[in-house]
């Protein structure tokens, strides 16, 4: 059973109106259990839209999305995934710990269990002493780490992440990448990850999906053969650079095709 199956999915916003936007057209993608898949592509190509379709926060215009063998609706109702958005989106009136506990509260966990898990999560994102702070007392990068802790808190089988490390400094970012890989390997979590960074996509992923803009389509899928246990050394390996080149060519090729199209129009 695949973790995520997307079959011939198209999404148009404001359908039938003058301002219709074809965000995605005929996208098909299969993500296996435990796989780490990154989506990369120029701004506005529909990466966030695709992620929100998987999360069932949007309904596809046509096509079908299944998650863990269920419909996307059912998977959402069963809370089969955790999500980290582009913005941290923490609740101002809750302490950091209470923010992390939110999904657990909604699942009806006991107070003591919630607290234990929240403290584990704070350790994980290396902010153990900030549990009683309020989000607005934290820097943007720290807030983003709390949002990741919140997404991971319930140990969901599927993680949907939309540029979660975008606001972090390089050092924290690499640390968080390592931690994310470690957690996912330990728990067998499947991840669909949106990023703008080619090295990040390659370092983290089993597969990198390259998308083209308006209407968003999958133009290339790069298999990354770096093996299971990745460390800082991985970033120096030949296979790492080869994969980066392959993704870059995927993005560039599309860019060239785009320019060509533009010329034809004129």
């Amino acid at each position: 059973m695949s973790a995520v199956n997307i079959k011939n999915v198209s999404k148009a916003f404001n359908e039938g109106k003058a301002n219709q936007v074809d965000a995605l057209r005929d996208v098909s993608l299969d993500v296996k259990q435990g796989e780490f898949v990154s989506l990369i592509g120029p701004s506005g190509c529909g990466k966030s839209t695709l992620l929100r379709l998987i999360a069932n926060l949007l309904e596809p215009t046509s096509g079908e999305v299944t998650v863990n063998g269920k419909t996307a609706v059912q998977a959402r109702l069963d809370q089969d995934y955790g999500m980290a958005f582009q913005q941290a989106g923490l609740f101002d009136w809750r302490t950091v710990r209470k923010n992390i506990e939110l999904p657990l509260e909604l699942k009806g966990w006991e107070k003591a269990d919630r607290r234990t898990r929240a403290d584990e999560m704070l350790q994980l994102v290396q902010l153990p002493e900030f549990g009683d702070h309020y989000p607005w007392q934290l820097s943007g990068g720290m807030q983003q780490r709390i949002a990741i802790a919140r997404a991971l808190a319930a140990h969901p089988p599927l993680l949907l992440m939309d540029e979660p490390f975008g606001a972090l400094d390089e050092m924290t970012r690499e640390y968080m990448q390592g931690e994310l890989l470690r957690i996912c390997a330990a728990t067998g979590t499947t991840v669909v990850f949106v990023t703008h960074s080619i090295p990040e996509a390659v370092y983290l992923s089993n597969r990198v999906v390259v998308m083209s803009p308006r209407p968003g389509r999958i133009t290339k899928v790069v298999d990354v053969s770096l093996g299971g246990d990745r460390s800082e050394d991985t970033r120096n390996r030949t296979a790492f650079f080869e994969a980066i080149t392959a993704v870059r060519e995927g993005l560039r090729g599309m860019h060239a095709a785009h320019v060509g199209l533009g010329n034809d129009d004129r």
Binding site: R52, A55, L57, R76, L77, D78, Q79, Y81, M83, F85, Q87, G89, F91, L102, P103, L106
Partner: peptide, 10 residues
């Protein structure tokens, strides 16, 4: 975004 977050928690 917060409304969506709550939605994602069903």
């Amino acid at each position: 975004a917060s409304v969506e977050l709550m939605q994602s928690y069903a």
